[in-house]
């Protein structure tokens, strides 16, 4: 039950800016969790975060094994071919036990839950992408001004 002292959060707009598995999942879990609580949710994918909604790439996201001290793998070992794939598959198995789905299914789930998904225009232009590159759940390509318009009246979370 929410603390009566504070007004409940009604709306969140979450920016996903990273394209690694661990960069994308927290934003999706937060958006999905918001919908589960009846909170309106938007997801705005920008820079490498766009990988999460690019049809050809979305199911190939990997955990970063280099430059990630919390992995407890020395960076020199992290560069070994297959290390990232190995770490990703281990993590996916653990997530599956918690019923956290693979990315494609997760995107479908947050969409079916009523989350709106947007692609960042600047990144789309920079990477020479178009609407055809994105999964069907993508609402539209929007610029940052439009993002603020859509996010109006709610909280913005940057991941």
């Amino acid at each position: 039950m929410s603390d009566a002292k504070y007004e409940a959060i009604k709306k969140v707009s979450i920016v996903v800016s990273k394209g690694s598995l661990e960069g994308v999942y927290p934003g999706l879990i937060m958006a999905n969790g918001a919908r589960m609580e009846g909170i309106e949710a938007n997801l705005f994918f920008t820079f490498f975060g766009l990988e999460a909604i690019i049809k050809k790439r979305m199911n190939k996201l990997k955990v970063a094994t280099v430059g990630n001290p919390a992995m407890h793998i020395p960076s020199l070992l992290g560069i070994i071919p297959g290390m990232s794939a190995f770490a990703t598959s281990k993590m996916m198995k653990e997530m599956d036990k918690l019923d956290i789905p693979p990315l494609g299914e997760f995107i479908e789930m947050v969409f079916d839950a009523g989350t709106k998904l947007y692609a960042c225009k600047a990144t789309v232009d920079m990477f020479h992408l178009s609407m055809d590159d994105f999964c069907e759940q993508t609402d539209s390509i929007i610029n940052v001004g439009k993002f603020y318009e859509i996010a109006a009246g709610g909280q913005i979370i940057f991941t």
Binding site: R35, M36, G38, D99, M109, D112, A113, G114
Partner: peptide, 26 residues
């Protein structure tokens, strides 16, 4: 979970949200 309701129970997620608005799992 909501995912299991879809995958094992055949209950589409959007339908679940329509049936139990503002908090389907709870």
């Amino acid at each position: 979970t909501i995912r299991r309701m879809k995958n094992a129970g055949g209950i589409p997620t959007n339908e679940l949200y329509e049936l139990f608005p503002q908090g389907p799992a709870k």
